[in-house]
């Protein structure tokens, strides 16, 4: 049996959430997705604070992170994760609409694992999500402390 690991999706736009979940579902990756609606919520989840105080132990196998979000933006989340000994090893994939090279550079400076510009064409988006999902959530061996589950 393939092992499926938990994915944390950080995205403020509900349409994007729906489309991303839809794309993940096409590849049967949707079951273990946790959605955070902004950067603050994402950090709460990762640090088990606020509404996530009661959640089960363990870090997600991968964080899919949007850049432009209210309150705490994606770059800030990335920075805080990389400064946190508990979180710095978690793979982070940026999923964004921005093609500006400034963002790209800044994210790689902060040690992002991958940077994906969401294609306009839905089919292209689906295949991008598939690649990202399969690689980080199935093929990649996560750092110690991540949740493993059989399915």
């Amino acid at each position: 049996m393939e092992e499926l690991k938990r994915i944390l999706l950080v995205e403020d736009d509900e349409k994007d959430i729906e489309l991303t979940l839809e794309a993940l579902a096409e590849h049967k990756l949707a079951n273990e997705v946790v959605v955070a609606r902004d950067g603050a919520e994402a950090l709460d989840y990762l640090r088990r604070r606020g509404i996530f105080t009661m959640r089960a132990n363990g870090n997600p196998a991968v964080v899919l992170l949007d850049l432009k979000m209210p309150k705490v933006d994606g770059l800030q989340v990335l920075k805080e994760m990389r400064f946190d000994a508990q979180l710095k090893a978690i793979p982070v994939v940026i999923l964004t609409s921005s093609r500006e090279s400034g963002d790209l550079e800044e994210c790689y400076q902060q040690g992002v694992n991958a940077y994906v510009v969401k294609p306009v064409k839905f089919q292209d988006f689906v295949s991008a999500i598939k690649e990202v999902g399969i690689f980080w959530a199935i093929l990649n061996e996560p750092p110690p402390g991540s949740v493993r589950r059989s399915r």
């Binding site: 349409k15 994007d16 839809e22 964004t96 609409s97 921005s98 400034g102 294609p119 306009v120 988006f125």
Partner: peptide, 21 residues
């Protein structure tokens, strides 16, 4: 141009995505 790049493309992705669905 940053906001054009980011904000104008999002609705287009949504249109295409939901048409597909």
């Amino acid at each position: 141009s940053y906001s054009v790049s980011h904000d104008l493309r999002s609705p287009l992705r949504h249109i295409d995505g939901f048409i597909e669905l």
